[in-house]
Simulated scan of single mutants.
Amino acid sequence: MEFFGAEPIRWYSEPKYWKWIIILSSVWKWSGYSSIIYMAAMANFDGSLYEAAKVDGANKFQRILFLTVPMLKPTIIVLSLLSVGRIFYGDFGMIYGIVGNNPVLAEEVTVIDTYVYQSMRTLGFSYATAIGLFQSVMGLILITAANKSAKKINDGEGLF
């Protein structure tokens, strides 16, 4: 498909676009889940606080900044900690479903999960298991450190 006489982009033969494609696909995938969580948290807020702030002369931006954001702080912390726990996990299903076994794009889109899958086929089960164990241990260390820092920042509120 050509637009205005420009050369067509061959998506599956040019690896330079795929980091952004994977990042944007992941953001798109998780944005619906996160927005549902935030909407559920906001549905539980006391409406009389907003009415009182409006009567006191707070504009919409001030109500968001001084009421909504502080009341969302525990939800933000929990979702941030869950995101930190997913740092070492690429979305194998999404990446493998979009890219498949394309050797041209393999170097650009390989994450730990796809590497474990490929190494299980080529290097053996024990090597792939060691990589998966390392991935899990690093995720545990990161989420524990993030939880400790969240407790320091937010007066003892964290996941555990």
Results as ranks from 00 to 15, higher is better:
R121E: 14
T114V: 06
I131C: 06
L105D: 03
G57A: 06
Y89T: 00
K60V: 14
V55M: 14
V84T: 03
S119T: 13
L65F: 14
D91R: 01
Y117E: 08
K151N: 06
G57Y: 06
V109C: 09
L140Q: 01
R121M: 12
D113R: 05
L81D: 02
T75L: 12
L142E: 02
L105G: 00
T114G: 00
L133P: 03
V111Y: 07
L133K: 06
I95Y: 03
I95H: 04
L72I: 00
T144D: 05
A146H: 00
Y89C: 04
E108A: 15
A128N: 04
G57P: 02
T110N: 10
S119M: 14
I143M: 09
I76F: 15
T129R: 11
A128G: 08
T122W: 07
F92P: 04
K148P: 01
F134N: 11
A130Y: 09
A106T: 00
N59V: 05
Y127L: 09
V104D: 10
I77W: 01
R63N: 05
I131A: 11
G90W: 05
T75A: 10
R86G: 10
D56Q: 12
T122Y: 12
N147A: 10
Y96G: 03
R63F: 10
S83M: 11
V69E: 05
P74W: 10
Y89S: 08
V137A: 14
T129Q: 13
V111G: 01
I143W: 02
N102Q: 04
S136P: 01
R63E: 14
V109F: 09
L81C: 03
L79Y: 00
Y96V: 04
T75K: 07
A150P: 04
D56E: 13
I131T: 06
S126L: 11
I98W: 09
